[in-house]
Design a protein around this nucleic acid. Structure first.
Lengths: 343, 343
DNA sequence: CCGGCGTCTGTGAGCGTTCACAGTAGAGAA
DNA sequence: TTCTCTACTGTGAACGCTCACAGACGCCGG
């Protein structure tokens, strides 16, 4: 009733206090806390009442000390942080992971490995067992941190397929190739034949896969691949703008563009507007991501939605399974075409 | 040399192993680990060598168990997450805090209290002492979580001045009122006299302060406040668009607008464009935040930059001081006018 | 009646640290 | 010499929990 009203931290109740209150032993309280097997209903109830009465919360440090688990996981961002931190999808992912973990009462530690120093510190921290597993966001290939963690046997789930790292590391990704196929098929079905593409960075699996999907559909539609219709980008708005200009210069007869990210698509739209091309009447534009940029653009963007909420949920599920001893797994999730005004 | 090459976790070395390796006692190793007072140079060196050789990393759980500290802090977001998660400034803040803490070797736990359930769980987690302190992001007044934490004596630093929570809780904020003053003075200095304002939400200190700054400058310039020139907003783009339309309808002779966020300013620009008003020739527009939206807008926005990097650094500094026993403190940081094309 | 089994409970040990304390050695003062 | 002081070191005892073990109890089949 009158407890804890004055502020100022006091020593919290221990399992001992609960045991005394409930008239049982520490062992019994511990059993109730960990699933309640081999406990009589009476004891069960008495312990629960005592827990409520004392306001007991388990001391995770003491528990971790003996179990060897930390009951926490790291969310590790290794690569150029600007790129991710400006990407609204990153936020959705981070939030999704945090909430999915919270459902299991597992806190998420945010780890940013920018400098070489930070990488070292974080690697030590993780391999020392201060987290049970790691959710990894790293677009780059052959990430040294990832390699080291895998070597140390730390449960690891990457977001997006990590390349050049061999198997044995789990990942969850949207089906980039299939998404690209859907979009390009959509453009083909609208009657377009001179379809350009602004690619993502080609040292990332996403960039590679989306371009591959584009080429596949051209092949299946009997349209010859024209290198002049392919211009590189890096997902940024600026590279989209440059890519759009370059595309118009190289192939003025282009009648549709598949852009590998919504942010770049915004840039492409700006370039087209400056060149006096109307969208979608003169030229259709398809994006990728379904980020807020897609709805904010004028005209609003037809795009491919990546199921970020499901991706985060799956990452957590796979990681917890792996912590529980299961083998590495790869999960590919379907994307969805979202039609708007730009096609 | 050949250690740790096969993957699969092995039991990490303990302070005991280090002591044996160095030929000293646990106590001496512990002393080296915690500052190295009262240790002979010889022992110091032997211990450091042993640490390097064994790859020893302190077990934080064991340490926490005895010290009562957790050496970690929580980053708590209590209010509507959409608003923050879509705000690029939030990312900058989160990153800044993470890095500032990392410099002290303190991990950051991300905590999102959306549902009532989550609030309860998180409050328990924190008050049970699983973090040493909390960085709080909450725009709302009288946040119940904040109140409870303060009641429990948990070190707490808020981002932005919390209202209705009394003193005793530290906060770090940009000088909203002064920023608003700078912007409105800038508009006055350009010769504008019919200056409108689209406010932020008036249940937040930021919204209130920015409006107050606006009124102060009008008073000091001898311009009468005209209620028709004041329209409410909630920082969202949509509310900016609505606000812009309403302003034009209520006061067609408006010749400048101070908009309390860049996102809203984008909306205002859209409304003005539709009404055929040229910016800045017919009407000047000033924003607030210096978010990416400000540079992306056409014309680019004159705005007020909030020093987010310094805000995060100060939040961490104040929190650590408070954990160390110091009293609550308030820090107000200066803003900066950034001139671009819209004025 | 006994032995066995399945269910439930208490007990001691120990996880890896830090902390308080007791102790040692050497230097300098009396 | 002896005593004191300082600089340093080692040694239990905790911290709060889980785990393995041993024991108690009731119930059944023999």
């Amino acid at each position: 009733m009158t407890m804890n009203q004055t502020g100022g931290r006091r020593r919290p109740p221990t399992i001992h206090d609960v045991a005394r209150e409930a008239g049982v032993s520490r062992g019994t309280v511990s059993r109730v806390l960990n699933g309640g097997h081999y406990v009589s209903p009476a004891a069960q109830e008495a312990v629960n009442a005592a827990i409520r009465k004392t306001g007991y919360v388990v001391n995770r440090h003491a528990r971790s000390l003996i179990t060897g688990r930390s009951d926490s996981v790291g969310f590790l961002l290794t690569e150029p942080q600007e790129r991710f931190f400006e990407d609204p999808n990153f936020n959705v992912l981070l939030r999704g992971c945090t909430q999915a973990l919270a459902a299991h009462d597992i806190p998420l530690l945010l780890m940013l490995a920018g400098t070489e120093d930070e990488r070292r510190r974080i690697t030590r921290y993780i391999t020392a067992g201060h987290v049970d597993g790691v959710l990894l966001v790293s677009s780059h290939s052959g990430d040294p941190v990832a390699l080291e963690l895998r070597e140390a046997g730390v449960p690891l789930v990457a977001c997006g397929k990590p390349i050049g790292i061999g198997s044995k590391v789990s990942y969850v990704a949207a089906d980039d190739r299939d998404g690209a196929r859907d979009m390009v098929r959509h453009l083909v079905s609208l009657g377009h034949r001179r379809i350009g593409v602004v690619t993502g960075p080609l040292d990332t699996p996403g960039g590679v896969e989306r371009l591959a999907g584009y080429k596949e559909v051209l092949a299946e539609a009997g349209i010859e691949v024209d290198e002049k219709l392919i211009v590189p980008g890096d997902y940024s708005r600026a590279s989209g703008e440059a890519g759009g200009e370059r595309l118009l210069a190289q192939a003025p007869d282009v009648d549709a563009v598949f852009v590998a990210s919504d942010l770049m698509a915004q840039g492409v739209l700006a370039a087209l507007r400056r060149a006096g091309r109307r969208v979608p009447d003169d030229i259709a534009v398809g994006g990728f991501d379904d980020s807020p940029a897609a709805t904010a653009a004028t005209p609003s963007l037809t795009t491919i939605r990546q199921p970020w909420d499901r991706i985060s949920a799956e990452m957590v599920r796979v990681l917890l399974a792996q912590i529980g001893g299961e083998d590495a797994a790869a999960v590919i999730l379907p994307t969805e075409l979202v039609r708007r005004e730009s096609t």
